[in-house]
Structure formats: C-alpha cells, structure tokens
Simulated scan of single mutants.
Amino acid sequence: MIDSDKKTEMLVGLFMFVGLLLLGGLILMFGRVREVFKDTYHLRVAFPNAAGIKEGSPIFLGGSRVGKVDKKPQLNDTFTGVILDLELFKDVMIPADASFAIGSAGLMGDALVEIKPTGKQTSAFLPHDLDKVIEGEKGGGLNDLQSQAEKVGKKVDVVLDDVRTALKDVQGAMGKVNKEALSDTTIQHFKEGIEHLNNTLKRVDEKVLGDENSLALKTALADFKAAAASFKVAAKNVEESSAKLGPMLDKLDPAIAKADKVMTTADESLQSIKKAADSFALAASNITTGKGLLGALMNDERLMTDFRDLIYNFKVNGPLWYKDTAERLRAEEAKKLHPEESQPKRGIFR
C-alpha cells in the first residue's frame, strides 16, 4: 500500500514538473524574459527633453522593439538636456542616417524612443558601443503635439493671408463692376437698347406679320401643297410607265448584246481592211516612185527588156544550153522591117 502511494506521488510530481517546464517555455517564448538572454550593445543619445522616459522604456525601429532604455535619463554637463543610455539587441543594425526621437504609444501615452531611418538604401551603419553621443531630435511626448500645433497654426496664418488677398481682389473686381458695368450710363444704354428692340418687334408685327402678308403666305402655301400633290401624281405615273417598260427593256438586252458583238466584229474587219489598203497604197507608191524590184521593172524600160529576154532564153534554150536567142531574133526582125539600115554604107568613090 505504501509503495503504491509513493508511486502515485512520483507520477504526480513528474507531471507537475513537466507542466512547469512547459509554462516556463511559454513565458520565455511569448514574454520579454527571453530578451534577458540576448546579446546587446549600447548607444548614447542626447535629447533636449525626454519627459516620460524611464528605465526600461522600449526602443522601436520600424514598429519592431529592438531594445530598451538601460538607465534613467541623466542631465548633461550644461543642464540643458538629458542623455539616454540605449541598450540594443546585437543583431539590430541602425542606419547611419537614422534619427532618434521621443514618441508615445497607447492610449495612456507611454513614452518610448523611436528610431526613424530615412528609407534610402544604405550600406553605412552605426558601430556598436559608439563612444560619441548622438544628437536626438527636439521635442517628445506632449512637446511634439505642441510643435505640431504651432506648425498647423503657421499654415493657418498663411491660408488666412491668402484669403485676405483674395478678398481684396474680389472687392476690387466688384468695385470695377459697380463703376463700369453697373454705372448710370451703362444702365441708360441698356434701357435704350431694350426700347429699340421693342420698337423693332412692333414694326415686324405690323409690316412683316400683318394680315395681308399672312394671307399671301397662306395662299403660297396652298399653291405649294397643290404643286406637291401634282408632282406626286406625275411621279406615280412615271413609276407605272417605268414598270411597264421594264420587261421590254429586258427583251431588248440580248439583241443589244448581239448588236454590240456584231459592231465589235465589224470594227475589227474594218481595221483589217484599213491595214490591207495601207499596205497596197504603200506598194503602189513604191511602184510609182521606182522603189523595189517591181517599181524598177515598171519604170526602167531597159531592165524590163532584159528581164523579158532572160525569161524567153530560159524558156527556149533551158538553163544548161542558155544563149541569147532573143537578141538575135530581135536583130533579124529589125533587118526585115528596115533593110536599108542593115546594108553597109558605101563611100562616094567606090
């Protein structure tokens, strides 16, 4: 029985030990106790006012907690400000162009130190455990609200000055309107213009839009209406006539097409006849002027006689036994016709 109780007590104690270990792990993981075990380095920053800052106040960089205030603020040598010792996590690198300011967080306005980088890409960072004191921004906490209120007040003053200038310009413009646009002379001219317009409208009503002109206009409109009706009837008749002529024109289309084809063929024949006539005229011209073989035969009597003798000799003797028979026959015929010319002449002393 005693051994069973001891065994139960040991199990309960072991369970409680494991539970405490898990609770401690959760506290270390989600609480700030783990920050105690992180490696840190220190920086010193001077502020003209650090109201609300105390030992253990958080330090934020880009919204992330990167350390705490190591000691309470200490007065500087001239008693014109305080110096804060900042304890930062060793794995946090502060850009060299970053500024340090006093801010507030939460509804209660708890003071904190805020590191504000410029946002530019840089490879220069503040060295760890820097001996030099860094100058922080002026103000902090409620002072920031006061400075912001002062800036807003200055901007409001600038806006009010602009409004005053604009009001002066509006007053000047209204004065010019009252003096020039709304002067007595301008109003009198406006009245005269209205009276002149009224008289003109009366004249138009009396002369242009009188009863006689209205009657003439009505008559002209009636005549125009009658002419339009006549034109409509004539157009209808033309349309009906066109409808009747349509089938006739459709029947004439094949005949017209054939006539076009015949005219095209006749045109081609006339062109061929013209070309032949031109060729014949050219040949006749060549014959008349003696150009070419035919022209020479027709115009040169000697050549024509030789050509005739050549054909006769070929016909009588043939090409192998060719001899000039035509010349001999011509000489014999000449002797028969003129025997006195063929006998030799004798001298007077023979």
Rank of each mutant, 00 (worst) to 15 (best):
D39Q: 12
T8G: 07
K6R: 07
G62M: 07
L22F: 12
A50L: 02
D5Y: 11
L23C: 10
G56M: 15
E9W: 08
G67T: 05
N49A: 14
N49E: 14
D3V: 05
L23M: 11
M10A: 08
M16Q: 03
E9V: 08
L22G: 15
P58N: 15
L21C: 14
G25S: 12
V66Y: 00
G52F: 04
F17L: 11
M16H: 00
F60S: 08
K7V: 02
V12C: 07
P48S: 05
M10L: 06
L26K: 06
L20Y: 04
I27V: 14
Y41P: 12
M16C: 09
M29T: 15
G63R: 07
G31R: 01
F60E: 04
G25I: 11
F37C: 02
V66E: 01
D5K: 12
R65H: 02
I2Y: 02
D3K: 11
H42G: 00
A46V: 01
M10R: 06
G31N: 06
D39G: 05
I27E: 13
M10T: 04
K68D: 02
S4C: 06
M16T: 07
L22R: 03
L28Y: 08
R44I: 03
G62V: 08
E55A: 11
K68L: 14
K38E: 13
G56H: 13
A51I: 10
R44Y: 15
G13F: 14
R34Y: 03
P48G: 06
R65A: 01
D39T: 07
T8N: 09
I53C: 13
R44A: 14
G13K: 13
R32G: 12
G56D: 06
V33P: 00
R65P: 02
G63Y: 03
R34D: 12
D3G: 09
S64A: 10
I59V: 15
G63P: 08
P58V: 09
G13M: 09
P48D: 06
L43S: 03
V36K: 07
Y41T: 01
T40F: 08
N49H: 09
L14W: 02
F37N: 10
A51R: 05
F37A: 07
A51W: 03
K54R: 11
M29Q: 15
R44F: 13
I53Q: 05
P58H: 09
A46G: 03
G62Q: 06
E35A: 09
L43P: 02
K68R: 05
K7I: 03
S57E: 08
D5F: 13
